[in-house]
């Protein structure tokens, strides 16, 4: 099972196809920001977003958008607050804020949010 820390260290990339985002680690997602939408409700499978945690990866479907490539502007990113699967979700120290950059050829660049960017949990 890949850990977020290892993926960030090795600069392993994620994937995107249409409105589907695939991150190479299993996580629980607490909050997502895409364009102007802040999504915290993952309970339905037709609006907003839903995610499915697999053993080695997590897939997220953004129902309100057809294509992530067309939705996220060149200098914009998707931001999310996540918790590594298997860690204590109630310990805020385990919460990580990731920035997801949608690139060409279905590639996704994953980074921990850097100092200049802002995302309030």
């Amino acid at each position: 099972m890949s850990k977020i820390e290892d993926v960030l260290k090795t600069d392993k990339k994620g994937l995107h196809y249409g409105n589907r985002l695939i991150l190479p680690f299993p996580i629980d997602i607490l909050k997502v920001n895409i364009k102007n939408d802040i999504i915290t409700d993952f309970s339905t499978s037709d609006v907003g977003a839903e995610y499915i945690v697999r053993d080695d990866y997590t897939e997220i479907y953004f129902h309100d958008y057809k294509s992530l490539m067309e939705t996220v502007a060149k200098y914009a990113v998707i931001k999310m607050v996540v918790v590594e699967k298997g860690t204590d979700i109630f310990d805020q120290g385990n919460h990580k804020i990731l920035s997801i950059d949608i690139l060409d050829k279905h590639i996704v660049d994953i980074k921990e949010i850097h100092d200049d960017q802002i995302f309030i949990e």
């Binding site: 502007a73 060149k74 200098y75 914009a76 990113v77 850097h114 200049d116 960017q117």
Partner: peptide
Amino acid sequence: DKEALRANEFDFE
């Protein structure tokens, strides 16, 4: 400055 654009998440929209 590309870093500034990225940090500002600049978007023409």
